[in-house]
């Protein structure tokens, strides 16, 4: 049984809300991608150079990294040669298989590392404008729903209005926000926040940080310090360092993931803004090139639109029509 058949069986009997939320959120992604795939097979009957070039473009159009695509297409060309496949339709299952293999590489653990006892600290990092503060608001909401005592640390002391933004989220969700003045040392905020979280016996502390472009060495050093201060207070903390990535980002997302990993050893990725027309193909590239799992994805504006990432569901959502066609 092929990978996709397995997926198909798994999900065809499943009609719960989560699956449909995935499908709705990703519908733009899917329509575009599979539509083009189908066109490709209709247009090209024989496997030739033009066919592969077109295939390359479809994958690149989904923001799958160029390196990943080139690798994939090379493998396919090789496969077509040795199996002597000339009919494009016969190549279709090979394509699915190879794509799936890229995604299936690892069994990812997408669970968030929450401590059974004591304080759990999550640090949120990323470039400017990816949605760190909003994500924290949503994560806080979901932990609150589980009955946990959540606190937020306003570590973005740089951007105008950032502290206030987190405070509004605190009010909305009904959790405390630890803050200092704008412009103060974010590491000091973290220290304060941990002390308060301890004395107020909080379960979860979510730490916001200022957005920073990964090529700004000074700012990355500052982030390293923030992390160090947290680890000094609680040796195994932060329990998660989550890199927030904007799904509309192109090739640069890989550079972001690499650099933030180097500096803060990120433990997972939150992929936001997948409800737009962005294809989210970046996930393929990240999984293929980096050993960091995607843990959460943002599928909409509402608090409950932040969902755990399910690789199988994600693939299925992307390729459904292709598989079932």
């Amino acid at each position: 049984m092929s990978f996709f058949d397995k997926l198909k069986n798994k999900f065809s009997n499943q009609s719960d809300g989560v699956t449909s939320k995935f499908k709705d959120g990703l519908s733009k992604t899917r329509d575009n991608f599979t539509g083009r795939m189908n066109e490709l097979f209709a247009q090209y009957r024989t496997v030739d150079e033009d066919f592969f070039e077109e295939l390359e473009e479809i994958l690149i159009g989904a923001d799958v990294g160029v390196t990943t695509v080139m690798e994939l297409v090379e493998e396919l060309e090789h496969e077509a040669r040795i199996q002597n496949i000339t009919d494009t339709r016969k190549l279709a299952p090979v394509i699915s298989e190879k794509l799936a293999a890229k995604l299936e590489k690892r069994e990812d653990d997408t669970r968030l590392n929450v401590q059974k006892d004591g304080l759990t600290v999550f640090l949120f990092v990323g470039v400017n404008g990816v949605g760190k503060t909003t994500t924290i608001g949503k994560v806080a909401h979901s932990f609150k729903q589980e009955g946990k005592k959540v606190m937020l640390a306003a570590g973005d002391t740089f951007r105008a209005g950032a502290i206030e933004q987190l405070e509004v989220w605190g009010e909305r969700v009904g959790v405390d926000v630890i803050k200092q003045q704008a412009g103060s040392d974010p590491a000091a905020v973290m220290y304060d926040a941990i002390q308060s979280a301890r004395s107020r016996k909080a379960d979860i502390l979510l730490c916001d940080t200022a957005g920073r472009l990964q090529n700004k060495v000074n700012l990355m050093n500052e982030l390293e310090k923030v992390k160090r201060v947290i680890s000094k207070e609680i040796p195994d903390a932060p329990h998660e360092v989550l890199l927030v990535l904007d799904a509309t980002t192109g090739q640069n997302a890989l550079s972001q993931a690499k650099t933030f990993k180097q500096v803060t050893n990120i433990s997972g990725i939150v992929l936001t803004k997948l409800d737009g027309t962005a294809k989210g193909g970046i996930v393929l590239a990240i999984r293929n090139e980096l050993d960091v799992p995607v843990k959460l994805i943002g599928l909409g504006e509402k608090v409950e639109d932040l969902q755990p990432f399910d690789a199988e569901q994600f693939v299925y959502g992307l390729f459904k029509e292709l598989v079932e066609a």
Binding site: V127, D246, T248, G250, A253, T277, A278, K279
Partner: peptide, 12 residues
């Protein structure tokens, strides 16, 4: 427009 935008820039 964010300079880091990928392929989706055209749609937006």
């Amino acid at each position: 427009v964010d300079a880091m935008t990928g392929q989706d820039a055209v749609n937006v």
